[in-house]
Amino acid sequence: MSDSPGGQITVYQDFNMQGNSLVIVDACSDLRPSGMNDQISSFVVTSGVWTFYQDINYQTPVGKTYGPGTYPNVGQVGLPNDQISSLKCVNQIMVYQDLNMQGTSLLITDACSDLRPTGLNDQISSFVVISGTWTFYQDINYQTPIGTTYGPGSYPNVGQAGLPNDQISSLKSV
Rank of each mutant, 00 (worst) to 15 (best):
G6K: 12
Q8A: 07
I9L: 02
N16H: 10
M17N: 11
Q18Y: 08
L22A: 10
L22F: 10
V23W: 08
I24F: 03
C28K: 11
G35L: 02
M36N: 13
N37P: 07
D38L: 04
Q39L: 15
Q39G: 06
S42N: 01
F43E: 02
V44G: 08
G48W: 04
W50S: 07
W50R: 09
Y53C: 03
Y53E: 06
V62L: 08
G63Q: 11
G63A: 12
K64Q: 14
G69K: 01
Y71V: 04
V74P: 03
Q76Y: 08
V77N: 00
P80F: 08
N81Q: 07
D82G: 02
I84K: 10
S86D: 09
S86W: 04
K88D: 07
K88A: 12
C89A: 15
M94F: 14
Q102T: 10
T104Q: 15
S105C: 11
I108W: 03
D110L: 01
C112V: 06
C112E: 13
S113D: 07
L115G: 04
P117W: 03
L120A: 02
F127S: 00
F127R: 01
S131G: 13
W134A: 02
T135Q: 14
T135K: 13
F136D: 01
Y137E: 05
Q138D: 12
D139R: 05
I140A: 13
I140S: 09
T144P: 04
P145W: 01
G147M: 01
G147P: 01
T149C: 07
G151T: 01
Y155E: 05
N157H: 04
G159E: 08
L163C: 01
D166N: 13
I168R: 02
S169N: 00
S169M: 00
S173T: 12
